[in-house]
Design a protein around this nucleic acid. Structure first.
Lengths: 206, 206
DNA sequence: GTCTATAATCAGATAGAC
DNA sequence: GTCTATCTGATTATAGAC
């Protein structure tokens, strides 16, 4: 008897979800194109094709808009990490994930956030979805790092956390952008150089 | 006969110079503490102890304030590079300069600018003092890089410009900040780790 | 050149009708 | 939930007296 009602509700929910997906996609695109600071809420509204006030019915602040987009990025990362072939050596797993972040940036598909914005950090850290993803990715990578160190593939004298941060930092490495602007190398060459520098260093191998 | 006049002028100029030095010092401090975006012109005026309108008699814009501070940083860099002992191996010269930038950051003495701000970039690139310093530092480092590559100390397969960018990027490496926040290591240890990772890579040496 | 006071602008967020 | 219209606060920059 109330089937029509439940169908209506589900339909409404689906519409809501679709609308919010459209918002998040626009936010993601703008974060990739110009970064958090340069992105305005007006632009987001215009990009989605709705009024700014409507945006605020879905997300309470600009920071929450960005956080929603970052949850999507983190989900992508979780999916990629899970799909890394288990039979690879730990070092090769780390290289694959790192290369993936480099390629995302080179393709213009990596959002850039200001690392010193405290209100943004607060919202990100208050997001359970984001933090769960970040922690899971960190755990998996951390395990690979320790395995690689035990196997003598990664310098065992480095604290694992330092290795983890160094890999995370590749996801916003300004070297990529500068080399790309130079126009002297293909994206693949740039990725190879930065990946090589990260793992092998600048020194010539002895 | 007009000696008193020329003395007065010189005195005035000296006062002007002193005042502008005070402004630049305050700007430098605020750029180190909070970065360009978070720094407001009101804060600069309050820090110097003068009215905001007076600031604008000395510098035409916020960007020019930052540029003046960056000229000072660039002069420091030029002086440091010049003082590197000529008898060192090229690789060791590069390591010294890189370590110096790491220590500046760890000491909280490195200004942070938003790399995507176009108006700021325009003002910086229009500053002859800044660009001259940047070019000279780049030239000297570039020479050392090529020497180190010829001597087989730095990977000769890497384009020199990629090496240069990689070293410049250490001057704003977020890994330093994260490791410092962790509180598990001293500044010296952090500098050692990042310097080692930069030149030797994450891999265990074969 | 320095000040007080104010302009001008921009962007995040909200009120209230529908 | 969506809209138009507006508020609010922050911030860069300037006018004009002294």
């Amino acid at each position: 008897m109330d089937m029509s009602c439940s169908i209506k509700l589900s339909f409404k929910k689906q519409m809501l979800r679709t609308r919010e997906d459209a918002i998040v996609r626009t936010v993601h695109r703008l974060l990739c194109e110009k970064g958090f600071d340069a992105m305005t809420v007006d632009e987001v509204a215009a990009g989605v094709g709705i009024a700014k006030a409507s945006l605020y019915k879905h997300f309470p602040s600009k920071e929450d808009l960005a956080a929603a987009a970052m949850v999507g990025v983190m989900r992508q990362a979780q999916a990629f990490v899970k799909a890394v072939p288990a039979e690879l050596a730990p070092l090769d797993k780390l290289r694959r994930v790192t290369r993936w972040t480099l390629e995302l940036q080179l393709a213009g598909d990596m959002p850039t956030l200001p690392s010193h914005n405290s209100s943004l950090r607060a919202v990100l850290m208050a997001s359970k979805d984001y933090m769960d993803g970040l922690l899971e990715v960190s755990d998996v990578l951390g395990g690979w790092i320790e395995q690689a160190q035990s196997a003598g593939q990664i310098n065992p004298q480095l604290p694992a956390i330092a290795v983890l941060y160094t890999l995370f930092a590749r996801a916003c490495d300004p070297v990529l952008e500068f080399l790309k602007l130079g126009g002297q190398h293909t994206d693949a060459q740039i990725a190879d150089m930065v990946l090589g520098t990260c793992f092998d260093g600048l020194n010539a191998r002895s």
